[in-house]
């Protein structure tokens, strides 16, 4: 479904990937780990078209990632960044704005669905009227996951989605992600994912991926 084909990437004068190849099948759950600065997030950024390859190709459903296909590819990907980069606003406004975006026009802003997922993620209802900046790290992560569930896109790129959650919630999220039947790429240092047999482990190393 997703193929990184012989890619090269140099970032800040550091070779992150050299002739690196990675194949991801549909519905696969991939756990990416490795030391910081080894290129985990860069892999996500490449797939989103936020960084440019120095060499090689990325394929999605037999379609090459280029300026023509990038918007379509992005529309199939939900990305949860490590810092959950929302601008500061009231949570409800942020969610509404996401639904106004062109690529999500086919979706309906449905408060009952939001409430359902909020219960699932053990989020308090009054969080919706709070400023995102006043939320705790764990609450922000779960708001990110809430939007992830609402958008219901086939591929999930999750960068440390559970780092600020308690043990019980980490387990719950790990299971929820499996139940959803999506293709999941997850960057995490959490044991929960390491232990879980449903996640295929991909280990990146510092400076010599694909050498």
């Amino acid at each position: 479904m997703i193929k990184f084909n012989n890619i090269n990437l140099i970032y800040d004068d550091k070779v992150l990937f050299k002739d690196y190849t990675l194949n991801i099948e549909e519905n696969e759950k991939i756990l990416i780990s490795g030391p910081s600065g080894c290129g985990k997030t860069s892999l996500f950024r490449l797939l989103l078209g936020f960084s440019k390859l120095d060499k090689g190709e990325i394929h999605y459903n037999n379609q090459i990632l280029n300026k023509k296909s990038i918007r379509k590819i992005r529309s199939h990907i939900f990305y949860l960044s490590q810092d959950i980069d929302f601008r500061n606003d009231i949570v409800e406004n942020i969610i509404k704005e996401v639904f106004e975006y062109d690529l999500n026009k086919h979706l309906k802003y449905d408060i009952s669905q939001i409430n359902k997922y909020m219960i699932e993620l053990e989020l308090d209802e009054n969080l919706l009227s709070k400023n995102i900046i006043d939320l705790s790290g764990g609450e922000r992560q779960r708001i990110g996951l809430l939007i992830c569930f609402l958008l219901n896109r086939p591929i999930l790129l999750l960068d440390e989605p559970t780092s600020a959650l308690d043990e019980k919630m980490k387990n719950k999220v790990a299971d929820l992600l499996i139940q959803k039947g999506k293709t999941v790429l997850i960057i995490s240092h959490d044991e929960v994912f390491q232990r879980n047999k449903n996640y295929k482990k991909v280990e990146l190393t510092n400076g010599n991926n694909g050498y």
Binding site: L48, F50, R74, S75, I77, F78, Y79, S81, D83, I84, D85, F86, R87, V98, Y101, D102, L103, N104, I147, L151
Partner: peptide
């Protein structure tokens, strides 16, 4: 705040 901008792009914004 490029990250915030890119995040909106990833969420489906033009």
């Amino acid at each position: 705040n490029e990250k915030i901008y890119l995040y909106s792009i990833s969420l489906g914004g033009t």
